[in-house]
Design a protein around this nucleic acid. Structure first.
Lengths: 219, 219
DNA sequence: ACGGGCGGTATTACATGCAATACCCCGGTG
DNA sequence: CACCGGGGTATTGCATGTAATACCGCCCGT
């Protein structure tokens, strides 16, 4: 994170609002991000809004079009596949390093997250909540890996991919498969099996890629 | 690139100036980046400077310290190793995809760059120039890979690592080894040998990591 | 009817004003 | 001599002013 500091930073709260709206669909891919319009809508000046929009661009959630402001990122299928290809390599690396360095507490926290996700299978679907928990789980693994540049790189990629994979959480089968695959990763990390963790994590992302393509075709 | 557009964007030129000064050592790691001070020194208003500094932060070349502005990134040895570990995975992936997709022109351009680097061995050392050519070479491979998210992620990592590896170009042996390793990568890409390219590129980064550690110890 | 040029409009990019706030040095005190 | 508190100072963060510029729809000429 750049700063985090929960201090009442206006730009920070604007940023979070925009991110939330993007993920909730209020700002769909391709939507224009006009600084004056957003400033009026959120009732703040243009400065924090401009800063937030530029941050979105840097984080890869928006693109800057030369003379027409910014727009929410719009990926075609190939681009999503590219993102997932990178994640395949990096999440594998993260899991591998996590398996080497995980403390007992780390392992406990990880397993607990997986169980929480498993418990949610009994409840009705809430795609947004499920997607968030999934992000948290992956994020945890990356934190445990202790490699901050790695975690930073993955955070960006995640944000982009989740614009296009979050819808999949609505489907029961995908939720079940995800839990199984997550458990495999967590177990390997718990066992200190670095290579197994790497393979499990890479396979998980690869499987997401396949599922996504199928899901998109059936739409 | 994010915007690039040749328009005379003040913020863009300020950004480039700052990056140059960072890599040339005028702004060494840990140096404070005071917005008003830089604005006065560069004779522009604070707006483009503020924007540029925030961009540096997002790109990973500077860190924001809660109540004391920003400072040029300062990595310890472990962090550099982490960065290189990520690059090992990603540059391998980039070379692999490049080998699959390279056109005849791509290959020609790549080989020409390597030869240019080889020719430079005959001339006296110019660390800054050599480092730039090295970046260009790696960047070219990533462009050829056609995976933009991958190239973007690597660009950031490169920037960070180069703060700490650029000094190595002063040494003759390192320059020679680099050319050899680059040629291996380029040859594999030219031959369409995806797996060989991946291994060559990963090995190259791993070797950089080893050389860097040795170079740092000898100081 | 259709193509080309033109003004209205909204936007960006930059400059600057302003208040709040945290740091630092320095002098005073136990 | 060590420690603590207060004022000065510089900085951030936000708001707003302003010029240049590119786009869009409309009107006019052919």
């Amino acid at each position: 994170m750049t700063t985090a500091e929960s201090g009442s930073l206006l730009a920070e709260s604007v940023y979070r609002t925009l991110v939330d709206q993007i993920f909730e669909g209020a700002l769909p891919p391709g939507a224009p991000l006009s600084v004056p319009a957003l400033a009026a809508r959120l009732d703040v000046s243009r400065s924090p809004v401009r800063e937030s929009v530029q941050r979105l661009i840097h984080e890869g959630l928006a693109v800057h079009v030369p003379h027409a402001g910014a727009r929410v990122l719009q990926l075609d299928e190939d681009a999503v596949r590219d993102v997932l290809a990178v994640r395949e390599a990096l999440d594998g690396l993260a899991a591998q390093e996590a398996a080497r360095r995980a403390s007992a507490d780390d392992v406990a926290g990880l397993l607990e997250l997986v169980e929480r996700q498993a418990d949610l299978l009994e409840e009705p679907t809430d795609p947004l909540r499920d997607a968030r928990l999934d992000v948290e789980l992956h994020t945890r693994v990356r934190e445990v890996s202790g490699n901050r540049p790695l975690a930073d790189a993955l955070r960006r990629l995640d944000a982009q991919a989740h614009l296009y994979t979050s819808g999949m959480w609505a489907e029961e089968s995908n939720r079940r498969i995800a839990v199984v695959e997550h458990r495999r990763i967590a177990d390997a990390v718990a066992a200190g099996d670095a290579d197994g963790a790497r393979r499990a994590a890479s396979a998980h992302v690869a499987a997401i890629s396949v599922r996504m393509r199928r899901w998109r075709m059936s739409h």
